[in-house]
């Protein structure tokens, strides 16, 4: 905004100059023409750049609209409470929801425990040096490893070596390793944001390291850690590839009842229904309806994260 005012002033100056003594040195037409072109280009570019953002927004709207339209009439109580079936009108995602839920029963404690401990170790205990930066680099590289590769790791280590097959436990542990870097990064950031004087205060009162971490550092880093954990969990809920690689069968008619049962989860069901739309067009509606359930779940999780962030985050 500032800029346009200043360029307007420039033009006025040039006009003033033309009326005055400098007339012979400045050619008003050429200068104002070049200036106008530059300003025009600036305005066009601004519109164009905004167009890019609009493009992304429009895609988002189309995506939601399209999925919403396909799912209308398919999401009802029966869809949420009955089990999978090969007949679209009878099929429901109750077992799938239970599968996703049990998956989180594994993922949440495992990632929280490992992630927060790693973050505490790196920020509070590890000596600043080679080992610490090695672990840090390692974690950021892990974050960049494609999720299918984690699937192969899970297939070999949990599936075949530990003989967990394609059970909920195998799937949950695989997803835990996948989202671990997210929690560690969030935890580190939250712990780093705890100001040094709080720790010094605790030490000055005779607290030991562990007491300080437990009673001072962790409580004030908790909102940040929780926010990061929720983001990690929502990543895990939507992740498909590693679970498919683990070899989860296309149709499981029994509702999983323990961590060792075979299962299917929301994203996997979306995948198989999408693949089968060639055979039965109604499967597209089922997939869209499941997507809506998944997106609502993610939306709720993220809202909780935002509420926690806004309500409990303290700034020092």
């Amino acid at each position: 905004m500032n800029h346009h005012n200043s360029s307007d002033n420039n033009e006025k100056n040039i006009e003033l100059n033309n009326e005055g003594k400098l007339k012979t040195f400045f050619n008003k037409d050429i200068i104002s023409k070049r200036m106008n072109n530059r300003i025009l280009l600036d305005k066009v570019a601004k519109k164009l750049f905004f167009g890019s953002i609009l493009f992304a927004l429009i895609i988002l709207v189309i995506l939601f609209y399209r999925i919403g339209v396909l799912s209308i009439g398919w999401i009802d109580l029966q869809f949420l409470t009955s089990n999978l079936s090969i007949f679209p009108e009878k099929a429901g995602i109750y077992g799938v929801l239970i599968g996703s839920f049990l998956l989180m029963v594994v993922v949440i404690p495992v990632t929280l425990l490992l992630g927060i401990s790693t973050a505490i170790y790196l920020e509070e205990y590890a000596k600043k040096g080679r080992f610490q930066s090695f672990v840090n680099i390692n974690i950021s590289n892990l974050a960049g490893v494609p999720s299918v590769i984690f699937g192969l790791l899970g297939l070999t280590v949990f599936g075949r070596l530990l003989n967990l097959g394609s059970s909920i436990l195998a799937g949950g542990l695989t997803l835990s390793l996948l989202v671990l870097p997210i929690i560690v990064a969030a935890g580190q950031e939250a712990i780093r944001a705890v100001p040094g004087f709080l720790r010094d205060g605790a030490y000055a009162m005779g607290a030991t390291k562990w007491t300080t971490v437990r009673t001072v550092v962790l409580p004030s880093a908790l909102p940040g850690i929780l926010t990061g954990s929720i983001l990690a969990v929502s990543r895990a809920i939507g992740e498909t590839a590693p679970l498919v690689v683990l070899g989860i069968p296309a149709l499981i008619l029994r509702v999983p009842n323990s961590l060792m049962s075979d299962f299917t989860a929301l994203p996997i069901q979306i995948y198989y229904w999408t693949l089968d739309t060639v055979l039965t067009p109604e499967y597209a509606n089922m997939a869209a309806a499941t997507i809506v359930v998944l997106l609502v779940l993610l939306f709720l999780l993220n809202s909780v994260a935002i509420v926690i962030r806004n309500k409990y985050q303290r700034r020092y």
């Binding site: 790693t118 505490i120 170790y121 672990v135 974690i139 892990l142 790791l153 390793l177 030991t208 390291k209």
Partner: peptide
Amino acid sequence: EMIMPKLFLIAGSISIFTTIGIVLT
């Protein structure tokens, strides 16, 4: 006080074992 750092270290090395696991697999 003595045990906790060791536990944290073990948790921290899980990420390294994950990388080793991926590469070895």
